[in-house]
Design a protein around this nucleic acid. Structure first.
Length: 481
DNA sequence: TTTTGAGTTGTTCGA
DNA sequence: GTCGAACAACTCAAA
């Protein structure tokens, strides 16, 4: 054995040093080439959206820096993964390719092609557990079928699960000599927008593992203690905001649960409803992946087949008003504008805006899912699909058909002072809280005093709540038959 | 196999 | 203004 043992470490959305199985496995090699491959125009649907690309750019940068600190680097390459990985292996004389599994069914063809290409070259492939706590068949019902009800999934999970975290390595194997000439720079990947719509992103987000870990520790020390009530109030910073960090694998859910167990005790014995609620939210992500893996058609097709024939309507004008935050319903508009400016929307408002698009405007949930996919920094195929189908009533454990969010009372209930509306729809900021979620009902002198001319400064509602509600209910009535 | 109880996030109406 | 009931019926989980 004269030549050193060399491995290619394929990095995807696992941009972390802690709890990174493939990275740990790579320590068994003498030389390791960590690499990220960017495919400009992948042939799959659901290719990475604009907001996610922004995050990826900064996250790659952060990860590259931390690899450098440990004596390695991140090699960036443009091209088709299965071709480039084999090419890299040949260039460096590597014997093995390592990666952490992705649970996105859209990526399955790439993996199959890679396995084939590697096999032809006699390369060893090692796929490790990725960003999930429960892989496809790790948690099933006693009869062997997948869960379709969250509570049952959760109960089983806390019974069987114990976290096992792994510290980050203190040093990494060196990069081999003989630099690969076809590397790209981060700028070459062209991940940042051409027009600077990301200005607002920079003040809200700090991608990277270090920031993710800090955010988790701070949240689990403070915010989580009021989570059960604060998480529902969109004007507060009551949620963990860890979702994009999880999506890019900057933090493993294992580490969050470990921290919870270390601080508050075993999951099965938690008593504080705030901690339980937060743990449940972490597990919703797992449940979404559970569903996505067992029902891989759900990003595009309803889980409940009866909904294939639901009479959704195309309405470009209404859809555009929704995307721009110009529906005339302040809670909806505030949410859509927050999304546009920050790449994120508060969870409660996600439900309200989604419900409004599907039920009040009668637009297909898939249209909304695609908009969220492009604009969210935490866009996650499993959570996005599950969330939209839940709202549409066609998913697992879905909302009953008669549950149609009232866009006025939801605003008033969860933000009685109207702070969220005032923040994101500043044209309404002088309107008293009493009217801020229903400006069209405000007396004309109040509107005048607040300096608002409806129809000019802020739109009238594009649809009537009561009418839309009744129409949606009667359509659902039809579907049942 | 059969049976029984339960199921994230709500709204409206009428007393 | 507050509160409880009705909204429907079905699928799922587990004993």
């Amino acid at each position: 054995m004269n030549s050193p043992k060399t491995a290619i470490l394929w990095i995807r959305r696992d941009l972390r040093l802690h709890d990174n199985q493939a990275l740990l496995h790579s320590l068994n090699f003498q030389q390791v080439v960590p690499c990220f491959i960017w495919e400009d125009t992948p042939s799959t649907e659901w290719r990475m959206g604009a907001a996610s690309k922004w995050w990826l750019h900064h996250s790659l940068h952060a990860f590259q820096q931390s690899l450098k600190k440990l004596g390695s680097d991140l090699v960036l390459v443009k091209g088709t993964p299965e071709k480039k990985l084999v090419e890299l292996a040949q260039h460096y004389g590597a014997s093995s390719i390592l990666w952490n599994r992705s649970y996105n069914p859209q990526e399955a063809p790439t993996i199959q092609a890679l396995m084939r290409a590697a096999g032809q070259q006699g390369l060893e492939v090692i796929a490790c557990q990725g960003n999930l706590l429960c892989e496809k068949s790790a948690l099933l019902k006693d009869d062997g079928n997948p869960y379709k009800v969250y509570t049952a999934f959760w109960r089983k999970f806390i019974k069987v699960y114990t976290p096992t975290c792994q510290a980050k390595p203190t040093q990494l194997p060196a990069l081999p000599q003989a630099p690969y000439t076809k590397t790209a720079t981060l700028a070459d990947l062209n991940l940042l927008p051409d027009i600077p719509w990301d200005a607002g992103f920079n003040e809200y987000w700090h991608p990277g593992e270090e920031h993710a870990l800090t955010k988790m520790r701070t949240f689990l020390k403070q915010g989580v203690l009021r989570y059960k009530s604060d998480r529902d109030q969109p004007h507060l910073a009551g949620t963990s905001m860890l979702s994009p960090h999880l999506q890019f694998g900057e933090i493993h859910p294992q580490r969050i649960l470990q921290h919870i167990v270390d601080t508050f005790g075993p999951l099965g014995q938690l008593t504080d409803p705030n901690i339980i609620q937060f743990t449940k939210e972490v597990l919703w992500r797992e449940f979404s992946y559970h569903l996505l893996q067992h029902f891989p058609h759900t990003p595009n097709q309803p889980l409940v087949k009866a909904f294939q024939h639901f009479p959704y309507q195309k309405n470009k004008v209404w859809f555009k008003a929704w995307t721009k935050g110009q529906t005339g319903y302040p809670i909806v508009d505030a949410g859509m504008r927050q999304l546009w400016h920050t790449g994120w929307m508060h969870n409660r408002v996600r439900m309200i805006t989604a419900s409004f698009l599907i039920k009040h405007l009668g637009v297909h949930w898939l249209e909304g899912a695609k908009w969220f996919w492009d604009t969210l920094v935490d866009a996650d195929l499993a959570s996005n699909t599950q969330g939209w189908q839940w709202t549409a009533g066609c998913g697992a454990d879905a909302a009953p058909f008669f549950r149609i969010f009232n866009p006025i009372t939801q605003g008033e209930k969860f933000d009685p002072q109207g702070l969220y509306a005032a923040r994101w729809c500043p044209e309404l900021r002088h309107l008293p809280a009493k009217w801020i979620y229903k400006p069209w009902e405000a007396p004309s002198h109040e509107l005048k005093k607040a300096g608002i001319h409806l129809g000019t400064d802020y739109p009238y509602p594009i649809v009537d709540h009561k009418e839309s509600r009744e129409r949606a209910l009667s359509q659902y009535e039809e579907i049942k038959k």
